[in-house]
Design a binder for these strands. Sequence first.
DNA 1: TACATTATGTAGTAGACACTACATTTCAAT
DNA 2: ATTGAAATGTAGTGTCTACTACATAATGTA
Lengths: 215, 215
Amino acid sequence: MWYIDFMDTDEERGSERPRLTTKGIATRQKIVQAAADLLCHRGIAGVCLEDIQKAANVGASQVYHYFSSKQELVQAAIDLQIQLILEGQQPFLIDLRSFEALEAWGRILVAMQKNGQNPLGLVLTSMASELSGSDPQVRLKISEGFDRWENHVREGLTKMGEQGILREEADPQKLALAMMSAIQGGLLLSQARGDTKPLEVAFETVLRHIQSFQV
Amino acid sequence: MWYIDFMDTDEERGSERPRLTTKGIATRQKIVQAAADLLCHRGIAGVCLEDIQKAANVGASQVYHYFSSKQELVQAAIDLQIQLILEGQQPFLIDLRSFEALEAWGRILVAMQKNGQNPLGLVLTSMASELSGSDPQVRLKISEGFDRWENHVREGLTKMGEQGILREEADPQKLALAMMSAIQGGLLLSQARGDTKPLEVAFETVLRHIQSFQV
DNA sequence: TACATTATGTAGTAGACACTACATTTCAAT
DNA sequence: ATTGAAATGTAGTGTCTACTACATAATGTA
């Protein structure tokens, strides 16, 4: 309406993505990382682009050179953060085939939360704050990351069932869901109180419950 | 700086609260209720005063006649919501002395979440979104409400221990914490998926764990 | 080297929103 | 009935912020 410069259709814009140079890739990454970090600490609504620009040492034009909107940047940041969250739990998360592995995994989670720069917080914060309102795209992304997380747990428990470590009555689906709930609730309370105890207790409780199905 | 009309100190303003008439009380309440309802659904950051004004059918001047800032209104709304949350769990929450009572309480929680207008959501949403950033006052209020909630649970479990329903090894403090984590995580996931299953499973799991301490 | 494309800097614009000044109406107490 | 305070209406103001236009610098490629 007010801007007269070139306007192209969505299709064109979609396929016309400028190819990034090495420097461009680095800048883009710098922006995404800064965004992810801020988002993690202050939530989506609590972060403005100017903050991100300052943190990444770039100008507004750079942000809009690499992303078409704040929403797109946020999505990229969430992608990164989910990746970090899942990677941070390796190799235990991908190999949950024994009670020892479960315990080790729990220790990793607590350590991650304890480590100040809790990447876990993002999932919580973003998820909860954007859940009911605003952006369905973001919600979907987080939900997907979450499912991946839960799937690892369910697969691990399923294998434990198949290998005869758990009794047949054990329902991996339910147990995985209970575990994820415990983790999320534990993280929420831990973050609220600035103390990892809730996460530890919540995790331990579900772990004990799973152990009660031990053959 | 730009406004030349009367300026008074915080002390004066604090003690100079206008006395409300019957009508005034009603209007104030209407505003708080509308705010609480919106906050519950869209989170603190997701609600602007104009929305609240429309929902309550009042003008901006009325809002600022009864509250000195958005923050103050939000706090009043949270107070109301916490009260509703705790009241909604009566009489079971205050009388958790048996496994039957625990089960009935769980059913109430699920029903509250199912009931669309989930007052439970507020705690989550507000808590998580305000956790890291912004308003420490709001955070404190929510944290207090939360503690009251948890205290009821702990007291109930303690009584069950004293009455010999639970074995001595049962640690009411830990069990209460695990229960609260499960509830919060369950609510979070339930809200994310639009399905109360996570809450049900999470609650049931901790309940089974508590039952494992049965004499 | 020439040139097209990418990367970055500067300086804005429009809109959303919290909050305000001031005028008018309603109402309760004397 | 009078009057002072409370309740409500109208019409803003300034700030924050997402986003943009346009100019310049850097860079890969022929």
